[in-house]
Design a protein around this nucleic acid. Sequence first.
DNA 1: CGAGTCACG
DNA 2: GACGTACGTGACTCGG
Length: 948
Amino acid sequence: MTETPARDKAADTAPYKHLYLVDGSGYIFRAFFAIPPRMTSHGVHTNAVFGFTNMLIKLLRDTDADGLAVIFDHSGDSFRNEIYPDYKANRDEPPEELVPQFAAIREATRAFGLPCLEQPGYEADDLIATYARLAADQGLRVTIVSSDKDLMQLVAERIDMLDPMKDKAIGRDEVIEKFGVPPEKVIDVQALAGDSTDNVPGVPGIGIKTAAQLVEDYGSLEALLERAGEIKQPKRREKLIENADLARVSKRLVTLEQQVPVEADLAGFGLREPDPEVLRDFLERYEFRSILNRLADKLVANGGEGVVPDAKEVGGSAAPVTSEAPAERPPGSGYETVQTAEALKAWVARATEAGTVAVDTETDSLDSLRATLVGVSLAVAPGEACYIPLAHKGDGGDGDSLDFEAGAPPQQIPLEEALDLLRPLLADPTVLKIGQNLKYDLEVLHRYGVEVAPLDDTMLLSYVLEGGLHGHGMDELSKLHLDHTPIPFKEVCGSGKSQITFDRVPLDRATDYAAEDADVTYRLHALLKPQLVTEKVTRVYETLERPLVPVLVAMEEAGIKVDTGQLKRLSNDFATRMGELETEIHRLASRPFNIGSPKQLGEILFDELSLPGGKKGKTGAYATGAEILEQLAAQGHDLPARVLDWRQVAKLKSTYTDALQNQINPKTGRVHTSFGQAVASTGRLSSTDPNLQNIPVRTEEGRKIRCAFVAEAGHKLLSVDYSQIELRLTAHIAGVDALREAFAAGHDIHAMTASQVFGVPLADMDPATRRRAKAINFGIIYGISAFGLAQNLGIAQGEARDYIGAYFARYPEIQDYMERTKAEAKERGWVGTLFGRRIHLPTIRDKNPARRSFGERAAINAPIQGTAADIIKRAMIRIPPAIEAAKLEARMLLQVHDELLFEVPEAQVEETAALVAQVMEGACAPALELTVPLVADVGVGASWDEAH
DNA sequence: CGAGTCACG
DNA sequence: GACGTACGTGACTCGG
């Protein structure tokens, strides 16, 4: 090694203007975890090298780089280990798939003719720091290509950074965003906060945010350490005094060395064209065929064999999309408007002959139980579709008024005559009716005395095939699978104030729109239905989703009775209470303000009253969530306590007592929800307009609303719910013998867990220990994290980590399950339920670690939540025929994920309860035998509150 | 129309 | 090696 300082060797004028310094070591680690695995035909892992190569190409192509060097860590200790022996001592060995890529990435660098720099005793960051300073001193622009925050201290007037993973430029502002201080103070902040990944100690108890605040307040680390005695918080003061030297050592560790006696000369970093033969040889050996193709024109030296298809990436799982025959016309024109009985008869005959017909109804409302039928469209083959108008009005006035400008209604088949012609077709067991969200059409047609069966639903086909990947609305599916955008509803009916109902749309436009929907549905069906078999989800579709449609129709049609008098009384009570609280809150705040505005509330609490704990989020607004307000209330502040009260009452009033009254169907006097069957990615149902799956139950005030859900005279409400179904399924799926035995014996599962994990004898179990165990049990189902558990229990993350460790030590099968499931999800892009439902997790391979972790937790939860959803769906499908067979008259009204609610004649309550519980407990058979018992608990009452 | 908040399993 | 945090939903209110 030469001792000559590089400065003397550097050319005074480098042959370039903008130098890029690429952090090769940093990149390879990040790329390894961010990029899906891939390997050569010889089994050599190449994902990180592939990412690096692509990044280099992009850099050379898209930027103004005219000088470039790639810098690596040298293996072995650096001078920092002499300062602090534990530096980076907590690092795991790199994964074995990564190790061979260290050499390959250097090869890649050389293949592009680029300098490849490293130096014993120094880390890449020090070399980068040194070269960056040298170049900047010469007036060159420097861009450091790295995602490593440790390099941010180098950002300066002529030095910026580029995050190659996010393709994001990092300048002074971004550094301030990250560290809360400008670049020149970053090392002070890092010295205080430490860095767990590098094992830089810092000062215990101080994180980035506190550090930034302190450095800002005192100007520098040294000034802070000297005046540490002035700090108000006693704990913080002690820690700072006690650990001042540790902070100073930390600062030396995080400070990059800008005076490395470097060997290579800046002048040699000018870009030049790579040798095509060397580059080609490299790309071929690593089998980067897609890159070879892209660079084909630059690699002519070898002639070669031409275009080679890219190797399929490991784990790539995009479902192949078969395309329609090319001769076919795209959807969108040549549809027939059916205005005579003769024409309709011809269409019915064609549909009967074909054995398959796509059906769509047009109405004047999204509410299927109030909508008026305006027309029906049919499709019998791709492009062969018609629209049958049934209740269109003239194109001007409302038909009833004396508006002389209004056109007369168009010619239409009389409604009853048309229905009589359609009825046999729609009920014909030999003709398959295809629809998109047929539940809606079934409900509309049912009110006109029309039955529809058998059926296939393209929305549900898409849901079972590609749940989790995208939504399942028709427009979205059409764009995705048919590459065709159907006429938007807005274009036909307008939007906002000037929106018209479909019965006002002129017949030609109505036909274009309505027949196209049937046409698109027909084509989607032809495309999706065969995929059930190839994708192995036939059972999910045929045994879970398709038979559920008529069940949901019956439930939505049944609705549930609400006691309006009770709701009105509650509404008044809540209004009075809100008024009282409002007066009190305004008095405490010393001025009136809008309590419902989090923005105004935050300003009152933290600016005007200067209460502690004001934290601003991304949007610059103070956080005023329940958790924050509870903390303040616990400290004895009245205003936040009253706001919490006010919020609870306001929520109950606006969302439940008021909104519910408006949702009562005037014809039935009952409330009819709509169940979403293709919404939740896990297979659960959802409930809207109104949502009856989130009626309050956890607080006493809230339960008053449940009291308003009542049974018809002479009837009772019967509630049957699965006890601990998700935890039971976890025990089964993960194969946890200890939990299975506890369930089999009927023990208190949370107490049992507490005993087994914390070693407390069952007899001495205290509620706090049981509560901890319960929180862990729930956490497991959600894909536990120390952070989440700590948050939930209000404990330190370290303590939460210990709990999880103890739990995994006691139930190692759970940890196995989690690791297995994550690996499987990453490999395939989806996870499955016990009944074969697939839940896709597109974020599981995301390069953003937050989104990826999110995907991993969802992967752990989905098989559990999804299997529970499958089981209750099986029960729901079996219950109506079981009730009928037993000659009972109970009606199933609602499903709330693990609970079914029924309305039952008083005399039949016991028999129905026993029957329902039996079906629910046996819902897995005969497809599956669980190794834990399923238990259904029964409740009966005049109201939902009593029954629950 | 997005963010914040909060109701449920 | 780094980012944000428990899983899945829907409705209401505010404010740009």
